[in-house]
Design a protein around this nucleic acid. Structure first.
Ligand code: SF4
Ligand code: SF4
Lengths: 159, 159
DNA sequence: AGTATTGAGGACTCTTTTATCCTAAATTAA
DNA sequence: TTAATTTAGGATAAAAGAGTCCTCAATACT
């Protein structure tokens, strides 16, 4: 199990790229998808969720695309996660016993409750501008490794 | 996204129940499943993974079932997670960029790398005996809520 | 030996996630 | 007005996760 769904990861990569490129004009989803080596159709659906949540403005037609509805500096990573994966990760019990924590907490309750706060704070602290700056400063990558590298990686991986 | 897969959660609940019941004799999977209100067939498959990893001994026939291969006190929660979900959660990048962290770390790298250690330590610290003791001391539950409660819960939930 | 019990394991179904494809609607520019 | 571009959104397919069912093998007990 990964921490975030693939949709969510793709969405995060896309908004970081958008933050790098600046928010002056609309950026076409097709271009973003090409930069990130993702399916444009799939990314469209994902970014639609961000648009519906009011995080992005979208605009059709030539010169259209998406842009942030607020400055990237004000958009926290958790907002992206919330729009795509929901807040379950930060709010639900580690043992999947929904509705717990009040009357009948589960064995891990204390430890996990404490930890959820740390995790949530991590995602609430990072804003898109900062992440974008990191990427540029350190010359980090947003694309996936080449297919070859992934195959190699999977061979060495447990399961 | 949940932190752990359902299989993993079911597996954890099962071994905690086993730790509560003691390790003197084999405990039938069917009985465990009934106690936890799970499908016996499904739980069988899950516990098979623990048997294959050497965490449990299994024994067929009347009086058969499963039992720990080591004292519950020595089995850490992370071993259960590793056998069912793998260690991806504790070892992979939050942005899903496999093989990262070395040459070309991603934007979240530092924060997440630091956090992964905390998360991993949490799961490495808890042993089954301790969890079982918690459950008993506090009268906590391992079963899910009634179907009715779950439906009610889902209605109130975001998505 | 025979029978009931219980885990092993394969086949299959259902659901959710991930991904692709196609059409429609909005918009720009010529 | 026409043509090209680009998001919206539905239909569909492929893959993975979750769950069910059936048969086989091992074992205990009579
Ligand atoms: S009691 Fe706490 S740890 Fe357990 S399921 Fe509820 S919220 Fe999670
Ligand atoms: S660089 Fe760090 S945070 Fe980024 S994907 Fe790799 S391990 Fe995860």
């Amino acid at each position: 199990m990964a921490l975030l769904s693939k949709s969510c990861v793709y969405g995060i990569r896309a908004v970081i790229l958008m933050a790098i490129k600046g928010n002056a004009e609309f950026m076409s989803i097709k271009d973003i998808a090409e930069d990130l080596n993702l399916s444009a159709h799939f990314l469209t659906k994902i970014l639609q969720q961000l648009t519906q949540e009011g995080l992005l403005y979208s605009h059709r037609g030539p010169k259209g695309g998406v842009k942030f509805s607020r400055p990237a500096k004000e958009i926290k990573l958790i907002e992206i996660v919330a729009a795509i994966d929901g807040l379950e990760l930060f709010e639900e019990c580690a043992l999947g016993l929904h509705g717990c924590g009040t009357a009948t907490p589960c064995p891990l309750h204390e430890k996990w409750a404490e930890h959820k706060v740390v995790l949530r704070t991590l995602f609430e602290t990072e804003d898109l501008e900062k992440l974008a700056a990191n990427v540029q400063d350190a010359g980090l990558r947003l694309r996936t490794l080449s297919q070859l590298d992934i195959i190699e990686f999977n061979k060495n991986k447990k399961k």
